[in-house]
Design a protein around this nucleic acid. Structure first.
Lengths: 234, 234
DNA sequence: GAGTGGTCTAGACCACCCT
DNA sequence: GGGTGGTCTAGACCACTCC
C-alpha cells in the first residue's frame, strides 16, 4: 500500500496535502474526481468531499461543478484571527486590567464622524473616550461613536463601570462589519491619554459594526500604546 | 409551521442564527441536541450537524461530546483575510506595479536576525532589501532573510527581476508560520527608501514562514509607506 | 452508564457547466 | 449530454465526558 491507511477525512486531507507539498499535483493541475479518489483511498466519496472542502476553504484548491478540483495557482495565504475583548486580551497576558471612562457626550455628528458612520447630520450620536489599562499603564485608547437611532438603550447605559465594548456585546445582536488596521502618529489627545510622546507611531484598529438591516451601529477606533503587536497564526 | 421550510443545511444555519439574534437562545444556554433539532426541522441529523459546525467555526457556538452545544458567552469575532502577493494587491488597486532590488548580501546572521529566525550564528543567510512601487511611488519596503540551509536554491535565484515573495511561492512548498502586525517609526533607511520623513508612523507586517519540519524558511518585514490601510471584512 | 457530538458509509438526487 | 461537485438521507459506530 502506498498510503499508511486512510481512516477518516483528516487522513485524506493529510494525504492530499502531502501530494500538494511534494508537487505531485502542481499549481493549475486538475485533481482526480472525488469518486476516483474515494476508490483509491478505499473510503466513501463523502469522506473525500469533506477533506477537499476543508482544503478548498484554506484557499489551496478551487472546486467547480463539472469543472473538477484544481490546484490554485497563486495560493493566497488565508489567515484567521480572533478579535478578543480588550479585558480578556489583557488578562490573558497575566496583567491586571483597568478601565476608565474619559469623556462622554451626546451630540450631532461631525463631518468626519458622518463619513465614518454613514449617517446624516441630524443623527444623535453618543461619543465616548475610554482608556483600558494593563497593570495601571495605558494599553489602548478607545474612541467610540454609537448611533442612538439604532441603539436607543445606549443613551442610558452606564459606561463608567462597563466598557462600551462589553456593553455592546451584551446588549446588541452580533452582526457584520469591517476592520481597518493602520499606523498613525500620536495626536495631542493620544499622547496625553497614552502617556507617550506626540508623533509616536501608534497601531490603530478602526472597526465598524452593522446590524442585520445594514445600519451602522457603532464605529470604534482603538489606538494602542507604543509597542503593541498584533500576533496572528497562519 | 413556525419555520418557512427547511431544505438544506444553510436554511438550518439561518434559522439557528435567527434564534441566536433574537436571544431565544442566550449566551450560556444549552441548545437542544442535534437529534431533537433534526426532528423539529424535519431533516437528517447530519444536516443539523453541518449547520451547527459551521456556526461553531465562526465562534458563536461551543460544542462538546456529551456536553452538548452551548451559546458562547463572549463571542470573539473571528475574522479571516487574505494575504495577497504585493504585485496583485497593487494591480487590484488599478495602479502600475513596479519592483526594484535594493540590496542583496549573503552573510552570517546578526543577533537580531538570529532571534527572529531561530537559527545559530553559523547559518548562511541571504539578506535582501527590495522596494515595491505603485505608479512609480514607493508602496512597501521588503526586508527579507532566507536560510540557505533550508532553501539552497535561493543562493542562485535572480531576485532583481522577480521579487523574493513570488520566487518563494513558486519554489518552496507552502507551510505554516505566523504574522505580527505593528506600527513603527520610520528609520533612516525606511525614510530614504519610502521617500518619507524620518519618524513617520509606518505600518509593518512581519511574517515568519516555516516548512513542514518546522525549520524557519524565511522572515520578511514589510514596511508600508505612510497612509497604508489594511482592510478586512468581518 | 448513558447521552452527546464526530464521523463514516452507501446510495441518491440535483445544479452546474464544459464539450 | 454527461461528468463533476454539492448536498441530503438513514443508519451506524465510536469517542468523549458528564452524572
Amino acid at each position: 500500500m502506498r498510503v499508511a491507511s486512510i481512516n477518516g477525512w483528516q487522513d485524506v486531507q493529510a494525504e492530499v496535502l502531502r501530494r500538494l507539498h511534494e508537487r505531485l499535483w502542481k499549481p493549475g493541475d486538475l485533481l482526480p474526481s472525488e469518486a476516483d479518489l474515494a476508490a483509491e483511498f478505499g473510503c466513501a466519496r463523502t469522506t473525500v468531499n469533506r477533506a477537499l472542502q476543508a482544503i478548498a476553504d484554506e484557499g489551496l484548491l478551487e472546486r467547480r461543478r463539472r469543472g473538477g478540483t484544481r490546484v490554485v495557482v497563486n495560493p493566497e495565504r488565508r489567515a484567521t484571527f480572533n478579535i478578543p475583548l480588550i479585558r480578556l486580551e489583557i488578562e490573558q497576558l497575566q496583567r491586571e486590567y483597568g478601565y476608565r471612562l474619559l469623556k462622554r457626550r451626546q451630540q450631532r455628528p461631525s463631518k468626519a464622524v458622518r463619513e465614518r458612520m454613514l449617517v446624516d447630520a441630524e443623527a444623535s450620536i453618543v461619543s465616548l473616550r475610554a482608556l483600558h489599562t494593563a497593570d495601571e499603564k495605558p494599553y489602548v485608547l478607545e474612541k467610540r461613536w454609537i448611533d442612538l437611532a439604532v441603539v436607543p438603550a445606549a443613551a442610558d447605559a452606564d459606561f463608567s463601570v462597563q466598557s462600551p465594548n462589553e456593553w455592546l456585546v451584551e446588549h446588541v445582536p452580533f452582526s457584520g462589519g469591517d476592520l481597518v488596521l493602520s499606523a498613525q502618529s500620536a495626536s495631542d489627545e493620544d499622547a496625553e491619554a497614552l502617556s507617550c510622546e506626540k508623533g509616536a507611531a501608534l497601531f490603530m484598529a478602526e472597526r465598524r459594526t452593522r446590524n442585520t438591516q445594514d445600519a451602522t451601529i457603532t464605529v470604534v477606533q482603538l489606538v494602542y500604546a507604543p509597542g503593541y503587536r498584533m500576533a496572528i497564526d497562519l
